[in-house]
Nucleic acid binder design. Structure first.
Lengths: 240, 240
DNA sequence: GTCTATACTGAGATAGAC
DNA sequence: GTCTATCTCAGTATAGAC
């Protein structure tokens, strides 16, 4: 039952009073969210549990959702740490690297599948600052895609695939998170199997992509996504 | 500026007082939602606009979200009507039929892209009755997938593809709706182009699927989805 | 800048009268 | 079936202690 809060230990050590309080509030909030669910937990509960006044909670976090946002940022930070560490110490081929990226993400989120759902709450509302596909989260999304870019950067790949792959893998990863949330199988085996299988297919597709028979498809897909502005430039930048 | 409310005309004609009131509330709600957005509109606004008391609004709709649900049901009903009519009157080949299904859906939702976002609000919360992927909306989802099943039923297709295609097309359609919501291009050309292009690719892939070179992929994909319980049986039935 | 205490507002939801 | 009155509670505002 290892929880994500390890991340905050960095802050917890060398910190002034303010950061300490902020951390306490965050800790209480996450425990309550995990315990009773996001909607059932009130800001008053959180403040009470953290031993501060309601105003203090609002002083540090504009609202409940921004606490979730802080949590997800911490998740991403931990994910990046895990990956940097693994890339530095182990020798892995492409498939192993991608597997590591996917699996470690699921491992981190394992006990927080309910919290994760809140991340998707505004996915259909472009203008909401927490829309997981909107401009408000562009930076976080860019970082997330970057992880995949790094995982494939040593690979010999044609330029177009180098552009296409990270965003596709990121999309796969987002889909996996959704499935993960709905997955009632023990230890979410279903999701883990699907991710492995999908990566396996991706590997095969990659080597197949060079086949002359499939060339037209490859450029067709790229053209399509480019027209729809679904390539990274769109996803990572502000749309006005 | 043709709006979806035509659908309700069926009710509007032969109806008792109750249905009439219900319809008035729905009509007011949708107008206000379109005008000021879903969250900015209160049940009080709706009741006032419809000329009934707050309690009356709650008598007919358990809450704001259930109004959206009623709206989306009407959308689906209209979609089905349009398609039945088109299938009965015109001769279309497979691609034309699928294009018609996709395009008519976008046409119906054209002016309600903001409302549409609410449909996705609980996509990350399996237990919420309005989760667009959860058990609570299984019936509506089944109907939606059925539309695609009907659109391909006259086609000569191997059994496995017959099972795989409707759910894939439905997924494509869901993705298109998301893109549609975010699409700021005039008349949402981007989304429409993408849908056309994606269908074009689908057609090519279909004919390619018979190529011996791609056989292993086909069965691999199917196996993968089956293991992940992502084929219709999962999506349309209750999960306990 | 950090935090407490308290009170207010607005909105979703419900109970019970008619 | 419909209305009025009321409840609850998230979020805000504020005034002031340190």
């Amino acid at each position: 039952m290892l929880h994500i809060l390890n991340v905050f230990k960095i802050n917890e050590a060398a910190t002034e009073k303010g950061e300490q309080t902020r951390h306490e509030i965050l800790k209480s909030a996450l425990r309550l969210f995990r315990d009773q669910g996001f909607d059932a937990t009130t800001m008053r509960d959180i403040a009470a549990d953290a031993g501060v006044a309601l105003g203090a909670a609002y002083y540090y976090f504009p609202g409940k959702e921004s606490i979730i946002q802080a949590y997800y940022k911490a998740v991403q930070a931990e994910h990046e740490n895990k990956i940097s560490e693994a890339l530095a110490t182990r020798k892995m081929d492409l498939k192993e690297r991608l597997q590591f990226v996917m699996r470690s993400k699921l491992d981190i989120l394992e006990n927080d599948r309910k919290l994760l759902g809140v991340i998707f709450r505004y996915s259909g509302e472009p203008d909401h600052p927490l829309s997981c596909l909107g401009p408000g989260t562009a930076e976080s999304r860019r970082e997330s895609i970057e992880i995949f870019t790094r995982a494939i950067e040593d690979e010999k790949l044609p330029k177009d695939l180098r552009q296409l792959l990270p965003i596709s893998l990121w999309a796969l990863h987002m889909g996996a998170l959704i499935l993960f949330i709905y997955d009632k199988s023990p230890q979410q085996q279903r999701t883990r199997k699907l991710v492995d299988g999908a990566l396996d297919l991706t590997m095969r597709l990659l080597s197949l992509a060079k086949n002359p028979l499939l060339r037209p498809f490859r450029s067709r897909v790229l053209e399509l996504l480019r027209d729809a502005e679904l390539l990274p430039d769109f996803v990572t930048q502000e749309t006005s």
